[in-house]
Design a protein around this nucleic acid. Structure first.
Lengths: 154, 154, 154, 154
DNA sequence: TTTT
DNA sequence: TTTT
């Protein structure tokens, strides 16, 4: 069992990229308020969140810096080579599911993808409004897919 | 909300150290089997687990490499200065609670500490058996304490 | 391990009562939207949430029907005697922690209670505004207490 | 968000039934040790766990009374008509995922079902050993299915 | 490097 | 750097 649940606000806009095979990957930083800051200031911890495929696109189309969300995912260690040739490790949270919080009706998006995304990465939702975070289509959502083992393009 | 739940086996023996003020800190690596390894080998992810105070001592006295546990905790980013002067970040899981799994009666330990540990770090449980992971005293366990903001001594 | 995490909106105002020993208990119903309603209507499941002591009072002072919250708690079966003399069982969620969601700065309340509540149940926060859910005092919050085994007064 | 995580031991053997359309449903009672029993006895809470389809069959084939498991699921209220005509409600935990704990290599089973179960309910795994809880086939496990809204046959 |  |  490997489970992470985080509630917080986006500290960055989501960045959506596409792998060579056309799979969407979103990433952003999430600010999670610390529970007890010793100095009574409301500090936060910052984590990198990764979302794949349909969920990635929903993030790209519906979230902006400041959006309040609830992430359900798992911890993952990713290794990469630093410029100095050494191996470096980063721990990220891969989202299985994201709930949009806040005043408007909570959206709900699952990391599922029934259709076949075009390899170019043009998403059917790419014209969705972004700064007016309307409800995304509520995710038909049967079947979850294996996160690709291709390199994450960032 | 910042919650992590991991089930796995210790990949290292726990290492227990003491801060200047005598607070115990345990750390170890936890191997969490990946759910779907593409190559069908049973690979794992490895995470660093931190436990404080009474829970740290219970870990030191009851866990060894290979022990199967269930960790309930939270994600924390810790930053330190690399040898080359640059800032480096590590993400760790701070345990609030650890359950001991396996064949013998499940222990249960909470990150609580009623007494005052001697600053020398000599623990009242320091003579407890280690390789014969008997049940630790079942944690009277009222009250949880703030994790210290002193430097973790490793 | 016994953990429940629910996000939803209050379906009722919280009801706060006091045990004979003066411990506050709040209860309310939480509407949690179902993920996949077959008929595409946004139906919900309804669960009873119980909060004790300081957390109960924070609920009573800050939550109203419609409030959006995140509950971290555990499942509990409670049995009582039905009018016909038979034993009846109810499953409830006892909150350890509740986060207030929505547009204003997220509050954070822990089920902790440092002071000694007067047996009359008069809370220091009993005059706090209710329909203008301002931030409660952010829970100094060291130490969590055992939920009482006295009868819940409802 | 509606999440439940329970660790415990089966208090009953799993009972597997089949709906009219041939979907397998398993149910059993799980004993979850209470954290702090006031009387220091190690009492437990008992919850009903429901599993569907492939996961139901894996439960039926691999679990027995006493098996130690980790359940990841969600809370569900089910209503039925009592003999006296009144409406009665039960709260159950529907498993998305069950991990088998204990001494032997942890199994891992997902609530996924790629194939089409015969309406008769004869499972491809129905001859698997039961009292010698060997590892079930490790769940190819792409795609999770909607829990049926047919009546649970018990 | 950071959100409200 | 790694557990079964």
């Amino acid at each position: 069992m490997n489970k992470v649940i985080l509630a917080g606000r986006l500290a960055t806009d989501p960045e959506v990229r596409y792998t060579q095979t056309g799979k969407a990957v979103a990433s952003f930083r999430l600010a999670v308020n610390k529970r007890f800051s010793r100095d009574q200031q409301n500090t936060a911890d910052f984590f990198t969140i990764i979302a794949w495929q349909k969920l990635a696109e929903i993030c790209g189309n519906n979230l902006v810096k400041g959006s309040q969300i609830l992430v359900d995912g798992y911890l993952q260690v990713r290794n990469y080579d630093a410029q100095d040739g050494s191996k470096r490790y980063v721990t990220e949270v891969v989202a299985n599911d994201i709930e949009f919080m806040g005043s408007r009706p909570a959206n709900h998006a699952d990391n599922n993808y029934a259709g076949t995304p075009s390899a170019s990465g043009t998403s059917s939702q790419s014209t969705a409004p972004k700064n007016q975070p309307a409800a995304s289509s509520p995710a038909s959502s049967f079947g979850s897919e294996l996160p690709p083992d291709e390199e994450i393009p960032f």
